[in-house]
Design a protein around this nucleic acid. Structure first.
Length: 589
RNA sequence: CGGGGCGUAGCGCAGGGGUAGCGCAGCUGCUUUGGGAGCAGCAGGUCGGCGGUUCGAACCCGCCCGCCCCGACCA
């Protein structure tokens, strides 16, 4: 392609509302434009990278044996009511929906479990027709509470979603492993540094789930890894080995023998300093309002060591609830009689309709002795608190948030925290949708059984953005070859006949050799062309200029290394092809 | 949903009751040609929208819309 005949405008400055580097650079490179919050247009150049990603995903999905389908984007409300997701997603405010002129409602699909389950139940009646895995690559909609970070969190986005159907759990396990392999192949082909971590399965439901994460400092997710590499989990899910206990070997002293005023000290750190002790001997008493599956709510207390935080993703599961939210600060006095900072486990007043406030103890305090706790009175803490002795424990739970340096659950070494961008998620869904939507087949024993499903998502646009987050420098994008809009740029530095002819010939030769070339034939000064080529990030650059040409060479360099080598024109095709084949990390001369 | 900020030329921004500005980009011409050149000239705006105050509003007030950030996380 010749720039002079292309639709492409680069920007010297990034749009003011672009926050993350991938958004800034994709916008500056003229590949992406923001149309509204979380909604973007791709220009011809940008679409090329998006398509590259799409094709890699399609090839690997096909290779895995999955079959491509196309499911509707506008889906009738009835399907969503059937699965029970209409009200839930509407309440959470994440469902984009619309009405037609008759008032019939539709969901703009954020995922397609209902539609695909409907497709399957219309056609499948026997176990002999299974198994299969259906996928599509289509635009999805999510009315994000807060779209941000460019393509990393959009309201309209391109996603590959796959759904496997099996007659039993064993079949699902096979599909799950196939998808894991396919995803690994995809991210490896893209040249991305990624990690597979254990995940919380979130709102979609189901049992096992793992996330593919592109490691990047700008990632929204925190990831926990053991140093030996044997353990990796999203922090929403991560566990640690039991922590050393500061009270080990001590005898329990009497409760309240040395109560102490703690006026105005809200944080555990301040209290510990004032009381002359360490933070891990302060009891943090958190009051939560939990909601069970049937919609009923209850207030409970969670005791955790002062140096730890409650993980609010792990908490609901530990409590047997679907949701748990901190009791609002204004409502605290009704239950505990004081402000935050002085809440304690003893003497809590249950809200109306609840006999008592159950007290759950985090594993970190299961055996605690001689620690401090709030007195439920402004400015006072009790001494000598030992949970098991002093309160009725409703249950011991494991709800602490893992910290950098905590002991690994694998038993050796410590945990380290990195940040990552979630680009893929694989789930063992089970029978959640096949039961609610009656997607059943006759098994070999002639019994009707609900199909066992898996679902597998992969963000196409997000992966492209993540690739930019991971591969850029001060001058612009450094595309991995498989995702680059064009593999090679040819720059004609001057407009005299000799230079132009040589550049034209190289453009023709490279194109004929099957290299995707972008030929900068504009009437621009050399500096402009260099800057633009760096910004867009073509993996390989061929510079045709008068000076080098006088010595019988042109200059070839990789975007990553930027060290140019003189190459005789006749050898350029060979060098470029070899360099690209090796990933363009370094020049193949 | 709560708090804060912003909306002025294609992009980035200044101005803050009295004729609409700057840099970059654009157009014309000259000059220049190896890392976003220089000079001269030109063109480009219902100052987000609606309403109000005023002799006069981009500016003050009200409502609305849009965008961004923070928060919704520690007892």
């Amino acid at each position: 392609m010749r720039w002079s005949q292309y639709f492409l405008v680069t920007l010297r400055e990034a749009p003011g509302d672009a926050e993350v580097v991938s958004h800034k650079l994709l916008a500056r490179a003229g590949m992406l434009q923001k149309v509204a919050a979380g909604i973007y247009s791709f220009t011809p150049l940008g679409l090329r990278s998006l398509r590259k990603m799409t094709e890699i995903v399609r090839e690997e999905m096909d290779r895995s044996g999955a079959l491509e389908v196309e499911l509707p984007i506008a889906q009738p409300k009835e399907l969503w009511v059937e699965s029970g997701r209409w009200d839930r997603y509407l309440n959470e405010g994440i469902l984009c929906h619309l009405e037609d002129r008759k008032g019939t409602e539709f969901a703009l699909a954020p995922t397609a479990e209902e539609a695909v389950t409907d497709m399957v139940r219309r056609s499948v009646t026997s176990w002999r027709q299974l198994p299969f895995n259906l996928y599509q690559i289509r635009t999805k909609f999510r009315d994000e509470i807060r779209p941000r970070f460019g393509l990393l969190r959009g309201r309209e986005f391109l996603m590959k979603d796959a759904y496997s159907f099996d007659v039993d759990q064993k079949g699902l396990d096979v599909h799950y492993v196939k998808m894991e392999k396919a995803y690994r192949a995809i991210f490896e082909r893209c040249g991305l540094e990624y990690a597979l971590v254990q995940a919380d399965s979130g709102a979609i439901g189901g049992s096992a789930s793992e996330e593919f994460m592109v490691v990047a400092d700008t990632g929204e997710d925190a990831l926990v890894f053991s140093e030996d590499g044997k353990y990796g989990a999203n922090i929403e899910k991560a566990v640690t080995a039991p922590l050393p206990e500061p009270w080990a070997g001590e005898d329990a002293r009497p409760f309240g023998e040395a109560d102490s005023p703690t006026p105005g000290l809200i944080t555990c750190e301040d209290q510990a300093r004032h009381l002359g002790t360490t933070v891990d001997r302060i009891t943090k008493t958190m009051l939560y309002e939990a909601v069970r599956e049937d919609g009923s709510a209850f207030v409970c207390a969670v005791l955790i060591r002062g140096d730890l935080d409650v993980n609010e993703v792990k908490l609901p599961k530990a409590l047997g609830a679907v949701h748990a939210r901190l009791v609002a600060e204004e409502k605290l006095p009704e239950i505990s009689g004081c402000r935050p900072g002085f809440v304690g486990p003893i003497g809590l007043k249950p809200p109306r309709g609840q006999a008592e406030v159950p007290v759950y103890v985090d594993r970190s305090m299961e055996n605690a002795r001689n620690v401090w706790c709030g007195a439920n009175r402004e400015g006072l803490h009790h001494s000598g608190f030992s949970p098991r002795r002093d309160v009725k424990v409703a249950g011991v739970v494991e709800v602490a948030t893992a910290r950098d340096g905590d002991p690994s659950p694998t038993g050796t070494g410590v945990l380290r925290i990195k940040r990552g961008i979630e680009v893929g998620h694989i789930f063992k869904l089970g029978t959640k949708y096949s039961v609610s939507m009656k997607c059943e087949v006759a098994d070999p024993q002639q019994k009707m059984v609900p199909l066992v499903m898996g679902c597998y998502g992969l963000g196409i646009g997000r992966t492209v953005a993540a690739a930019v987050e991971q591969n850029h420098d001060d001058d612009g994008i450094v595309w991995p070859v498989p995702l680059a809009p064009y593999a090679c740029a040819v720059l004609a530095l001057q407009r005299d006949k000799e230079v132009l002819d040589a550049a034209e010939k190289l453009y023709a030769d490279l194109s004929a050799a099957g290299v995707e070339v972008f030929f900068d034939d504009r009437d621009e000064r050399p500096g402009v062309k260099f800057k633009d080529a760096d910004l867009i990030g073509f993996p390989v650059r061929v510079v045709v200029g008068g000076k080098a040409l006088a010595k019988g060479v042109v200059e070839v360099s990789t975007r990553r290394e930027k060290k140019a080598e003189g190459v005789p024109p006749a050898k350029v095709v060979e060098v470029v092809k070899a360099t690209l084949a090796a990933g363009a990390r370094t020049l193949a001369v």
